[in-house]
């Protein structure tokens, strides 16, 4: 069983689909055509570059090279996690909290995965460590970003409600806990949907990939189960950390709501 390889014609087809979406955006006045084009070009360039870099890195099996690639991935995630949010903290805190939460959630589950379930030899082997980190990083980044975004926009909107609790003697935790919980729940909804739909409505990405690459479907499903569990754990850690840290930054030791810590 060899994987089915794609040729140039297939790539042109993919490009055609994007052009179709851009046309739709123009016809329907969605206003996302520019973003869509930029995103598509970025995606293509990034993926081709990644493929080439990985080809190179896998061939070397150097710890330092692997770490360098990982460091680059984490920096990019730190930047992305804080982008596309309307309500933002001041710059350093925004990216600091987003990046720190994403990295913590990812590192914990990657280590759990590499040291227990997958156990490549050596455990930092690039061929396993880099794709694993990439997969988890992307997921944790989404959850962290959603959680932060939800909390920031809710706090900005619900100022009067939060202060109403503070005024009556609530601590900042009491005043903001319901918003923190709501943010974490919102951040986890896509993952929960994905888990509920896995195998029934959709064939999850890793399993699909493994099957296309020729793995036995049952083995592929076991792989997916372990990875899905790692993903949901990482997402939970990232989302919780970013919500808690963001809410802490939006209040102070005197339990005040500090919306002046938002970027204007």
């Amino acid at each position: 069983m060899t994987p089915i390889l794609l040729d140039t014609g297939d790539m042109i087809l993919a490009g055609g689909l994007i052009v179709g979406c851009v046309a739709l955006s123009l016809v329907l006045s969605l206003g996302i055509h520019r973003t869509l084009i930029v995103a598509a070009i970025r995606m293509a360039v990034q993926l081709v570059l990644t493929g080439s870099v990985l080809l190179f890195v896998f061939g070397r099996s150097s710890v330092w090279l692997t770490l360098l690639v990982l460091a680059f991935m984490f920096s990019a995630a730190t930047f992305e996690v804080g982008s596309r949010q309307v309500t933002r903290l001041t710059r350093a805190w925004h990216f600091g909290i987003g990046g720190f939460s994403t990295a913590t959630g990812t590192v914990i589950v990657v280590l759990v995965g590499l040291l227990t379930a997958l156990q490549p030899h050596p455990w930092y082997q690039a061929r396993t460590a880099i794709p694993m980190t990439g997969l988890l990083l992307g997921n944790v980044m989404n959850a962290t970003s959603l959680s932060m975004n939800t909390l920031l926009s809710m706090v900005a909107r619900e100022r009067a409600a939060i202060e109403a609790r503070l005024i009556l003697g609530a601590t900042r935790a009491e005043a903001m806990n319901s918003l923190i919980r709501q943010s974490i729940r919102t951040a986890l909804i896509p993952t929960l949907n994905q888990m509920a739909a896995a195998g029934v409505i959709t064939l999850p990405g890793i399993m699909t990939g493994q099957i296309l690459a020729g793995m036995n479907p049952l083995d592929a499903s076991k792989y997916q189960i372990v990875l899905m569990s790692l993903i949901v754990s990482g997402n939970m850690i990232g989302a919780t950390m970013s919500a808690v840290l963001t809410s802490a930054r939006l209040s102070d030791a005197r339990g005040r709501l500090r919306l002046d810590h938002l970027a204007r």
């Binding site: 619900e158 100022r159 009067a160 409600a161 939060i162 202060e163 109403a164 609790r165 503070l166 005024i167 009556l168 003697g169 609530a170 601590t171 009491e174 319901s178 005197r254 339990g255 005040r256």
Partner: peptide
């Protein structure tokens, strides 16, 4: 004293009341 204990005794009623 902790801020929440202060506010429990010194209650501010804003012009626009907030409801959670």
């Amino acid at each position: 004293m902790p801020a929440h204990r202060w506010r429990r005794q010194v209650v501010y009623l804003p012009a626009e009341s907030g409801w959670w």
